[in-house]
């Protein structure tokens, strides 16, 4: 039987009017939030400390189920217990503190744990582990104890572990916050490559706009409410939102604006500015 027009199931995460307060708290951590994230899209969740970004992310893969409102992943409600395991597999999350999700004693075990849970063939395990470690540029022996990794290495490992599961939606909660600039750049490049190879939607939480220059859309949060969803370009034009969300314009973009204001003809100096990396 053919599906009628509005029955066609779209690949997307849909958040409808979700409100939430943590048990025992009299404030709403989320207030009537509605948004849609499409397949393969790169979106960023932005907002000051405590604005509800991490809280929302836990609703997207069914760690939390809303009392008020609903979340649908590819058309299925997260409250549908029968489908919850499938949803959790599709939507993977790397927590703000990677220590909260490290399960294995060694690097190998940590990655293999998730893989064995989804019935990944044992004889291909080692190859897969190497593959994802390369993807995130984590060069440590497979038998290294997770507890003895540095903070940045733990972040890379957490990313490798979820990439191994080939999610359709990947949520990264401040995953570069403990990486040095080199590793952070590498991480973002690796992520871009992984997205090209594996094509998944990326939901990226950060306080640093220079990390999301390729985002399709951004969602701005303040005090549990979604202020607006817009493109990065629109955000840059909107100094009020930048201020509310405690965001700084990326260095080169800001510098570019300032020299234009001071009468520099950017095209005329394209050579130098390109060399600088500003164009």
């Amino acid at each position: 039987m053919a599906l009628s027009r509005n029955e066609v199931i779209m690949s997307m995460i849909k958040v409808n009017h979700v409100s939430f307060s943590y048990p025992g708290s009299n404030r709403n951590a989320l207030k009537d939030v509605s948004l849609t994230i499409h397949e393969n899209e790169f979106v960023a969740l932005l907002g000051p400390n405590g604005s509800g970004k991490s809280t929302l992310s836990m609703f997207l893969n069914g760690i939390e189920i809303p009392d008020q409102g609903e979340v649908l992943v590819d058309g299925i409600k997260t409250s549908d217990e029968m489908h919850l395991p499938a949803i959790r597999r599709k939507v993977q999350i790397v927590f703000q503190n990677p220590e909260n999700q490290q399960v294995g004693i060694t690097v190998f075990e940590d990655i293999a744990f998730g893989l064995s849970n989804i019935g990944f063939p044992t004889d291909q395990m080692e190859e897969k582990v190497h593959l994802v470690l390369n993807l995130v540029n984590l060069n440590v022996p497979l038998d290294r104890e997770v507890a003895n990794l540095s903070g940045g290495e733990k972040q890379k490992l957490a990313l490798a572990s979820v990439l191994a599961l080939e999610p359709e939606y990947l949520i990264l909660d401040e995953s570069t916050s403990m990486l040095d600039p080199f590793s952070a750049r590498y991480f973002l490049t690796a992520l871009k490559q992984a997205r090209r190879k594996l094509s998944f939607a990326l939901i990226y939480i950060t306080h640093h706009l220079q990390e999301i220059e390729e985002a399709d859309r951004v969602f701005l949060f303040n005090d549990g409410s979604l202020l607006k969803g817009c493109t990065l370009e629109e955000l840059y034009q909107d100094s009020t939102s930048l201020e509310i969300c405690k965001l700084k314009m990326p260095y080169f973009r800001h510098l570019g604006l300032l020299i234009k204001e001071q009468g520099v003809d950017v095209l005329k100096h394209a050579n130098e500015l390109e060399e600088l990396g500003l164009l």
Binding site: L255, L258, E261, Q262, G263, V264
Partner: peptide, 22 residues
């Protein structure tokens, strides 16, 4: 300090118009 950097960069770009790629 981007105000400072932009002033200097603007000044130098304008002064060094003819410098090509190095």
């Amino acid at each position: 300090n981007l105000q400072m950097v932009s002033r200097i960069l603007t000044r130098e770009l304008k002064n060094n118009k003819c410098l090509g790629k190095t």
